[in-house]
Design a protein around this nucleic acid. Structure first.
Lengths: 172, 172
DNA sequence: TCGAATAGTTCCACAGTCGAAAGAGTAGGA
DNA sequence: TCCTACTCTTTCGACTGTGGAACTATTCGA
């Protein structure tokens, strides 16, 4: 997605109302784009390192962050915006590599419950640990107050991005 | 990539030195993961909307944000971590859809220079405009001082993520 | 009880990636 | 100046991920 360097970005960053033209806002938007791009490239690189496709990594993320809530193929399909066959194929790959197990659903015999294995947790630890190590000084050098501002902003930005994605469906 | 909900994340967020265990830091890391995930999903959704693969969108981003520097297939290949044939195929797709043009390189006849068309700028404007509209109130509600803190943090976080990606190559 | 709907999997066609190879061009050293 | 090694891009072919259609098993409500 183009950042503020490109023509259309600057021309259309304020489609309905006047956008925020403060230089701090421009810099923040550019920084968000750069961070999003680096995150995507890190995902792709770790995927190559672990022989996992991007979809597989995202699937693991959903399974591993579901808490006590059982994860079914249906739920994964919705969370990842994948078709049913693609979700099945992804689970085939993760199962073959020993990252997940399909278990019978406790009260719906059409379905299965997907659980992550210890191997998956090891891989996740390695991935998160690597970026966590590099991120530690970035976090440590900020005060609690600054981190709270940053966190709140990113939460709001995530919601806004999700709304923009929903806008695509309603305008198509 | 697993966020803090998962076991390995918490267990390994401090691989060498003690990580930042302040609740504000935990919240910030989680917010970064959520924002990165939403950004990736927005990219995928707009890609589907415009019949453009994720690689194509990233390619356009590189072409459109290159300023005066000529973009060659070689440079695109490096920026996107794609093989030469994959870069060629991507340019084929973008050219066929009228988003880019391949022009003769001014002083290296082996190469070409890739330029974005007005059509590409229109698409970029639409994509950025949509998310820009949703992001506008998020930016407008922050002071210049807050935005400066946020931007600096995300720039540092992007560098840290890039370093983590480089770490993959050296430890593999 | 039965029919409609749901859940997941399989089959198959399409599309994106990369290794190998080929052709054209460049650069540097003898 | 010329030749060799290297570079750049594209093409070919094999592999892999996605999604539509179809199938099977199961669930649920009339």
């Amino acid at each position: 997605m183009p950042d503020h360097h490109s023509r259309p970005a600057e021309a259309t960053a304020r489609p309905h109302s006047h956008g925020d033209r403060r230089p701090e806002a421009v810099r923040a938007v550019r920084a968000m784009a750069a961070f999003a791009t680096e995150s995507e490239m890190y995902l792709a690189a770790t995927g190559r390192d672990e022989a996992l496709h991007r979809t597989d990594l995202n699937g693991l993320r959903v399974v591993m962050s579901s808490g006590d809530e059982p994860v079914t193929p249906r739920r994964l399909s919705q969370a990842l915006q994948l078709s049913a066959p693609a979700t099945s194929a992804m689970l085939d790959r993760l199962e073959r590599l020993g990252h997940v197990e399909r278990r019978p659903h406790p009260h719906d015999r059409r379905s299965v419950v997907v659980v992550a294995t210890d191997h998956a947790h090891t891989v996740g630890a390695s991935m998160f640990g690597r970026v966590g190590a590099r991120m530690a000084p970035v976090l440590a050098s900020r005060s609690a107050g600054e981190l709270a501002v940053i966190a709140q902003f990113l939460e709001d930005a995530a919601v806004a991005t999700g709304s923009a994605r929903a806008d695509i469906r309603t305008t198509s």
